[in-house]
Design a protein around this nucleic acid. Structure first.
Lengths: 339, 339
DNA sequence: TTGTAGGCGTTATCAG
DNA sequence: CTGATAACGCCTACAA
């Protein structure tokens, strides 16, 4: 393997000079630089990344730990997100180092290792929780990081998030415009911080329309393994059942669709249904679903951009960025039929 | 950021002794070792992979370059594959370094950089092509690598692949058992090596059943952007149209489903349809599709295992592993109706 | 059984 | 402008 020393010897210069010549420092003679570059390429020199990292400068890599099993494993969220991260990183000359952790604790251990060993220059944190130990840890260990997802009351770190509040509010407004007044709500696990923002959109929209918040129409804390059949049945057997339902995740919408169908309720004739995420799942159901769409690749790309900016220009203030989702209208929603 | 030196100071020993105690050398007193281990865990010491790599020769990382845009981007293949790779790597103490390349040339450049700069110890190569320049490059640069996908006539490198031949053959056999005799075939791009193995399964099954290979029933080289409407129409308007169709990718099956439906042909009553891949796409169509299923996470896991074995025990002979897909029967296939 | 010294390849610091 | 020298954290002769 060709090292800097080999190049130095061959060029009749010191290792230091060669290093600086190759790294575009401005204090080396143009002639010397040319010579060094020629020798380096003749010898087929490539800098040893490991040594570079050990030395303490930049690793030109960012880290990401993905949960081993979350609901998102069933859709293509991570894939699109990662695609966004890697392509943006690539343009900036960074690589992505990926690990997986079975739980939050394991995730944190990975983050610790990655930054401590200088394997990466900074990390990306996903699925921000309401009380997130990982964030406290990263902050206190002075590891540059950017989170996908905000945490209420903590703006001392950079984050990129989807404006779930506006997303849900837009969807509810749309249902209202179709004449619906009894709108049910299926919420994601409350541990995730995005859950609360989405919920807020629902409340806001009802309030703006002067409608009551009826707790009986709300199902909360539903994860991918939740059994929806029974609660949905209860919901639809109310004195005044909802005429529309907004499900805060695709998997909930798909589950609700199956549940109501088994009750003989037709979508969208008897019940309108809106999903959130707009992955392949909601696009391929029958009928295809009206859904709040977030561009996962864009999210990954923005998170990476913010992190790299933070890494290159250091000491930048925390940046906060809200990405707007959009409502994709398909065939699972319809005007409220005249009673 | 606790280092060996910190542990040594705290334990009142030299760095050397601590290092040996922690690395299970047999020339340290049992008592000393216990003491060192206690101090190390109290301080939360974790060895620095980077430093370790520098003096040894292992980076404890493997590389993977994913194509920027291929048909697989629309399903969750990469996500599942990556999940398998990272979890297996993690267990062995390796990280995954991920890049993306817009074309094969860019991919190759990334592989070159990763191995030359010692950023990784070996790489994973995906989507093997019939004539794959990346493979020649990796072989000649002596970079340890494992491919997902074989290339006919090249067994001098390690690969893991899905037995597409048996997969398709099983599906055709199933259709035959339902009474079908006119079975159409929709093939993936011929540049991919798996295309040919799948095709072989089709031919084998027909031959074994004593049926003719009718070129009019075969559509080949269809990618995700292929317009299926016209060719499918032609296919179904034959004197003796097929009564069943086997599509060698989920996206082809979904496209075919739309195309035949627009012709007023019902699935499975008028036409049986089998897909390949069994991603969410084929699971959520109406009707849900009978599909040849491959376990993408398992594939990733096996590829990583083989690569790491190769890395740790060096000089191992190339290993070849064929993973069996399985046929998942759903509602897109039915017995041939009595004419 | 333990400690000392040297080096893996690179870059930062400071002298010349 | 260029070159010694000292790290980075770890391992491994070799010496004590």
């Amino acid at each position: 393997m060709v090292t800097l020393k080999d190049v130095a010897r061959q060029a009749g210069l010191s290792v230091t000079t060669v290093s600086r010549a190759l790294n575009a420092y401005d204090d080396v003679a143009a002639e010397t630089r040319a010579h060094v570059e020629r020798v380096a390429s003749e010898l087929g020199y490539h800098p040893n990344h490991i040594a570079r990292s050990l030395q303490g400068t930049r690793a030109y890599a960012v880290g990401l730990v993905i949960p081993q099993l979350v609901h998102r494993y069933v859709d293509s969220f991570w894939q699109e997100f990662i695609a966004g991260v890697t392509s943006t990183c690539g343009e900036a000359g960074f690589d992505l180092v990926l690990c997986t952790g079975k739980d939050l604790h394991a995730e944190q251990a990975h983050y610790q290792r990655l930054v401590r060993t200088r394997r990466v220059d900074g990390v990306i944190l996903c699925d921000a929780r309401v009380r997130d130990q990982r964030i406290s840890f990263l902050r206190q260990s002075h590891a540059p990081f950017v989170a996908f997802g905000r945490v209420l009351g903590h703006d001392d770190f950079s984050w990129v998030d989807v404006d779930g509040t506006t997303g849900v509010r837009t969807a509810v407004d749309y249902l209202l415009s179709l004449g619906h007044r009894r709108i049910g709500y299926l919420g994601t696990p409350t541990a995730f911080s995005f859950t609360h923002f989405r919920h807020e959109g629902y409340v806001d929209a009802l309030f703006a329309a002067g409608l009551d918040y009826d707790e009986r129409l709300i199902l909360e804390d539903l994860d991918v393994a939740s059994e929806l059949q029974a609660p949905i049945m209860e919901l639809m057997n109310l004195q005044e059942p909802p005429t529309a339902l907004i499900a805060c995740a695709d998997y909930l919408a798909a589950g609700a669709l199956r549940a109501v169908r088994s009750l003989g309720i037709r979508v969208p004739e008897d019940l309108s249904l809106v999903a959130f995420d707009d992955t392949l799942v909601s696009q391929h159901t029958e009928p295809p679903m009206t859904s709040i769409r977030q561009d996962n690749q864009l999210i990954g790309s923005r998170v990476a951009t913010v992190l790299i900016q933070q890494l290159l220009g250091d000491g930048l203030p925390p940046s906060h960025e809200l990405i707007q989702p959009s409502l994709v209208v398909r065939q699972s929603t319809a005007p409220l039929p005249a009673a």
